[in-house]
């Protein structure tokens, strides 16, 4: 039987989940298109349903099996206050990010996420992870940073993964809106249609081991590399 205290803790965790997934939370994700801008400037027109399929590919072949799995493993290590194991995941996911601007953006978002939460939380493992980033022992990629933050906020692991995949999807759809590729109602429709994929990708990847991390989306890698080489751009990635 749940008590009022339990309910209050769960409500607080739900609110923390909203806080972390809110585009108002300062991680700079509004400045990332994850390569979409390169598609836009290549002159290719994309319809809403094509954008939805593109985001699905990102989720199923890149963010899901790599970032989502890293988040799940990092969360378990954070829950056990095992900093050394946390640093292993930190290195693993950092080394899997093939494109420099994507790698840099991930560690900048992750680092700022940890610092922001440390400014008002005294969670021990979060403090240790922040110290490790500041000391050069950790990189601070976003999935690991989010896992540590979610643990500090008592957000369940699966919910933390939903936050990450949702925020990622919103950042691409938001970029599409700002680039004029689709209209605002279409953007919400795409996000709504992505929900089953977000749930499915979470379930498929959240409990896999570090050896099971993978990604294979060569077309997306090429798009992201093309973006990195663009001279004139509106988005960081």
């Amino acid at each position: 039987m749940s008590t009022d205290d339990d309910d209050a803790t769960m409500d607080a965790a739900d609110l923390s989940m909203m806080q972390l997934s809110d585009s108002f939370f300062p991680t700079g994700m509004y400045s990332m298109s994850n390569g979409l801008e390169a598609i836009f400037y290549s002159g290719r027109k994309i319809k809403a349903e094509e954008l939805r399929e593109l985001v699905k590919t990102y989720l199923e072949y890149q963010i899901g099996p790599a970032d989502c799995t890293a988040l799940g493993i990092a969360y378990e290590h954070a829950a056990r206050s095992n900093l050394l194991k946390l640093l292993e995941v930190d290195r693993a996911i950092f080394s899997m990010k093939l494109v420099q601007e994507i790698r840099d953006a991930s560690i900048r978002s992750g680092t700022q996420l940890v610092r922001c939460i440390r400014s008002f939380s005294d969670n021990k493992i979060l403090g240790q992870y922040d110290d490790a980033i500041r000391g050069g022992q950790a990189f601070g990629p976003y999935p690991v940073a989010l896992a540590v933050a979610a643990n500090a906020f008592l957000i369940p692991k699966e919910k933390a993964a939903l936050v990450m995949l949702y925020s990622f999807s919103v950042s691409i759809v938001g970029a599409a809106l700002r680039l004029g590729m689709l209209q605002h109602f279409d953007g919400q429709k795409v996000i709504d249609e992505l929900k089953p994929t977000i749930v499915k990708v979470t379930k498929a990847n959240i409990n896999r081991p570090i050896e099971g991390m993978w990604q294979f989306a060569p077309s997306i890698d090429i798009i992201q590399i093309s973006h990195e080489r663009m001279n004139s751009k509106m988005f960081i990635t």
Partner: peptide, 22 residues
């Protein structure tokens, strides 16, 4: 040089995280 996702005011005020990190 730093791109701002079309939101120059956000990058220096509401969410300066990319600038601070750099």
């Amino acid at each position: 040089g730093l791109a701002t996702g079309g939101c120059p005011h956000t990058a220096v005020r509401e969410d300066p995280s990319m600038n601070i990190s750099i």
